[in-house]
Amino acid sequence: MKHKILPISIIYINEDMINQRIDNFLKKKFKNVPKSMIYRIIRTGKIRINKKRIKPDYKLKNGDQLKIPPIKIKCRKNNNISIQNSEKKLLNNILYEDNYLLIINKPSGIAVHGGSGINHGIIESFRKLRPLEKYLELVHRIDKETSGILMLAKKRMALISLHEQIRDRKIKKEYIALVHGLWPENLKKISQPLLKKKLNNTQKKVLVHASGKFSETHFRIKKKYSLTTLLTAIPITGRTHQIRAHTLYAGHPILFDKRYGNHNLDLKIKHKNKLSRLLLHANSINFIHPKNGKNINIKAPLDLNLEKYLNALV
């Protein structure tokens, strides 16, 4: 088993991460790191929150700045050629860039960051591609299987500004989703609380539950096909897997969703089409530029395979 040193990272705690003990948070994030090492780096003060030492039982708060030192993790053998090809593809997928922001059209199947068994992600790739950038952090996350808009901050002030906009729900995101069945014309909003549940040692699932966090998604029908419906989904809140969980709750799961989908329906469709990726795409985002205050709207085109797939539907 090979090892890899993860670089220093800074994580800004959002509302989906709060109330977790720091030791449990780190154990989940770095599953390949021995627990003894995690407790050692906490005890020796290498883990800092808001530039201060903390104890293992410290509970994360919204807005906390968590600084993690370089960590040695076990990793599988990488296909270096595959990684290099992916990195070149990312450069071609840049939608917007200035001195403060970098926005890309993330391909489906690529994680946003390494850790938890994933050796290489978007943020690691761009830090390698842009070695002269002194600061480069993820503004938000997007599921590995989902394609579309992903924002990176190139300055700390930009990250803080955009996180404030996220907390104040001033950033507007829009997704495209292809779901099974014919979506009801009158179903335009789902407001159902979502709760994270652990299914086994590794996988978690978000389900509608009375004790979950308030979650709301708005939906618009773009086009109805014979067996499926193309939707516009607008998440009002930003919960993990929110759109995927809400469409499942409505009885219309997203096509080829291995965690929240309908495997039997997917199998029938796979016989006709080769495409089998999650059919969820973050296609637009609207926000206020952190420096000049201008209203910015970015759109991410569908990849050619997905566009061909939708055009072939009847």
Rank of each mutant, 00 (worst) to 15 (best):
K2G: 06
H3G: 05
L6T: 01
I10D: 06
I13E: 01
I18F: 04
Q20N: 07
I22E: 02
I41C: 09
I42A: 09
K46H: 04
I49A: 10
N50A: 02
N50D: 11
N50C: 05
R53M: 06
P56Y: 03
I71F: 06
C75Q: 15
C75K: 15
N79L: 07
N80E: 08
Q84W: 00
N99E: 10
S108R: 09
G114I: 02
R130V: 04
E133F: 07
L136N: 05
I142W: 02
D143S: 10
S147L: 07
A153N: 07
R156A: 12
R156P: 00
D168H: 12
R169K: 11
K170E: 13
I171S: 03
I171Y: 11
L178V: 14
V179W: 04
V179G: 04
L182G: 00
E185Y: 10
E185C: 00
L195Q: 15
N201A: 14
H209M: 04
G212H: 06
K213P: 09
F214G: 06
R220N: 10
I221P: 01
Y225V: 09
T229W: 03
H241Q: 12
Q242A: 15
Q242L: 07
L248R: 01
A250Q: 08
A250F: 06
G251R: 03
Y260H: 15
G261T: 15
H263Y: 02
K268R: 13
S276C: 03
L278D: 01
L278Y: 08
L280N: 03
L280F: 05
F287R: 11
N292G: 09
K294A: 08
K294S: 14
L310F: 00
A312P: 00
L313F: 12
